[in-house]
Amino acid sequence: MNEIGMTTNEIIGLALIIIGVLFDLSGCVGLVRLPDVYNRIQASTKCVVLGTTLILLGAMVSLASPQAVVKGIICILFILITSSTAAHALSHAAHRSGVSLWDKSVIDRYAEDHGHENNEEGAL
């Protein structure tokens, strides 16, 4: 204990949690600012995975018990697996149902090779 009444673990944990929340926040800003579905999925996976992982690490450090560490590691593992899988499924589904890329996108090799499946009658 020191003069602010927190242990070192708690201070480090809190710092990690604050950094994590800032990353989560920037992910949300990206969700609003970025132009199309694909870019937004990028922001919401990358920043949110990093942010949430840091929050969990912060919780692990500040609780500092083996139980908390085990739970934290399992949760991090699940987040890593599920968020990337969800991002892949969402973006793939969006592309298949004909959601176009942003106007200023430089290239779309997937549309060149496969075409937008619902786009053949000029729906979009």
């Binding site: 694909y38 999925i41 996976t45 990358k46 990337s84 892949h88 793939h92």
Partner: peptide, 15 residues
């Protein structure tokens, strides 16, 4: 590999 790509700088596997 596809999952790793999705989680790293600015890349997202679509198919």
């Amino acid at each position: 590999l596809a999952n790793s790509i999705t989680l790293t700088p600015g890349t997202l596997t679509i198919e």
